[in-house]
Simulated assay, not measured.
Amino acid sequence: MRKHYLFILLCVFTLLTNCSGGDDSLTTTTASTTAAAVKTGKLTGKVMSQNGTTPIGGASVFTFDDKYKIYYTTSDAEGKFTLDAPEGNHTIYIQTGNGTNFRTEISANVKDNETLNLDVSQTKLNQVAKIAYVKGTYDKIEDIITTLGYTATEITNNDLANLTTIAQYDIIFLNCGSRNNYSSNPALYTAIDANLATFVANGGSIYASDWDVAYLVGGTSNTNNCSLAGGFVPDTKLCSKNIGNVGMVGATVNNAGLTTALGFNTLNINYDLGAWQKIINYDPAYWEVLVKETSTSDALMIRTNHFTATGTPTTPIGTNTTFVTVCITLPGNIQISISVPQILVPYLVALGATVGSCSGSSTSGYIYYTTFHNHASGNIGNAGVILQYVILNL
């Protein structure tokens, strides 16, 4: 009986020893069957506007692998980028803003541990938005749009009073001095204010410069007091008075993305056309300050996509129907807003993306306001590069 007992102990010891060896073998097998590191290559290039000569800084460049993981980078101030991308045939997306208005898609065959240089003919940023502008007295944003190689249609204040007309556009530029004859036809501007509210609430974006802040907060061609009649942005959100002084103003870029796109964070802005609309106060939870006066920290350029309004009708705006804006979180808890084909949305949402921009109202378009503009004299210096950024990021 004792021999049987010893024999059993010997078997148990042998079994444990073999099991230990078995664990080592299992570990080795598991390691050998673990998925190999993803094979990647590099894509390099230079994002350009349609004119083929103006580099676009701050553009998003990205692609996805077959499991819908995003590979992402941005272009520098010279438009240059390097994207690590998974091996294989992929669609490469190039976008500015959240991709709703300017974007390009190209196909590329990425090879493991190789670099593919994309030609500038492939990386030109396409205009997918319909753009309109209202002619001004002191400002010609359309000149900058055209110089970049893009197109815009001139419309009038009478067109702004027709919702069907403006609903076909994605972006509307309001040039300084275009809101005139307010007192002679207040009903016209009442209709304009209501239509702009509907336009932005449903995803359209607008840009207003200097005196045309009146479209936002009310008044005529310029505003001398707060809480004036008209406009569509709540009076509690913004006040601007026509008290800015003529001269050179030192400015600081207050937004990291804009700084990357421009390649500088300080500049001088020449206010050379007389009194300009000085921002007196604003709601910092509503507006983001992109450029501020260095000495006073006064806001010189602001934007928001937080606009909401009760009672505005739900109206289809613009031409962008095949792409959807989503918010994706990158490593480091960095959030980016991009636009992707509708077919990708369910897969990205399953990985944690959310539909809509990362901030702001889910349906609101952007409102940009700058106290400066491209003066009739053309004397704007580095501010011109900022206005290029505004155009491409609305």
Rank of each mutant, 00 (worst) to 15 (best):
S49I: 02
T54L: 00
A37T: 04
N98G: 10
Y72V: 11
T29I: 14
L16P: 05
D24K: 14
A77F: 08
T73K: 14
V12N: 06
Q122A: 01
M48I: 02
L16M: 10
N113Q: 03
T17I: 12
N51W: 01
K42P: 01
Y133F: 15
T40E: 03
T100G: 15
G58Q: 09
K135G: 10
Q127V: 03
P55T: 00
I92E: 04
T40I: 08
A85I: 11
K67Q: 15
A129Y: 03
V38Q: 07
G88D: 15
D119A: 01
G79N: 09
F81L: 00
T137N: 12
S60E: 13
T29D: 10
K80T: 08
K130C: 10
S60L: 11
N51C: 00
T91G: 07
T96V: 01
T53I: 00
S60Q: 08
V120D: 06
A85T: 07
K80C: 09
R103I: 01
T28G: 14
T115R: 00
I70G: 06
T82Q: 08
E87Q: 15
V128I: 14
N113T: 04
T27A: 02
A108C: 04
S25C: 12
S75P: 09
S107T: 12
L16T: 12
S25V: 15
K124T: 02
A37L: 07
A36M: 09
C19F: 10
G45R: 03
A85K: 11
I94V: 02
K124G: 08
D84Q: 12
V47Q: 08
G99I: 03
F81E: 07
T28S: 13
I70H: 13
E105P: 02
D119P: 02
T29V: 09
Y138D: 09
S60T: 10
H90A: 12
S20D: 09
N113G: 04
I92L: 05
L10H: 08
Y5C: 11
L83Y: 07
G52P: 01
K111E: 09
I8G: 12
S20L: 14
A77P: 03
Y133T: 12
A108Q: 00
T27F: 08
D66N: 13
F7A: 14
D119S: 07
F64S: 13
F64I: 07
L6P: 05
A36W: 06
Q50W: 07
L16V: 11
V110T: 01
G21E: 13
L9V: 15
T63Q: 03
G97V: 04
T28P: 06
V134W: 14
L16K: 03
L10N: 06
L10F: 15
E105K: 09
D84G: 06
K46F: 02
Y5G: 13
V120M: 03
G79L: 01
K39W: 03
T123C: 06
T82D: 15
T27H: 07
S60R: 14
L118I: 02
T29Y: 14
T29N: 04
G57K: 05
L15V: 15
D76P: 13
I8E: 12
K135D: 08
F64R: 10
L10C: 11
R103P: 01
N51R: 08
T91M: 05
G52V: 03
I56C: 04
T82N: 07
Y5H: 11
A59N: 04
R103M: 08
H4W: 06
V128F: 11
T28F: 09
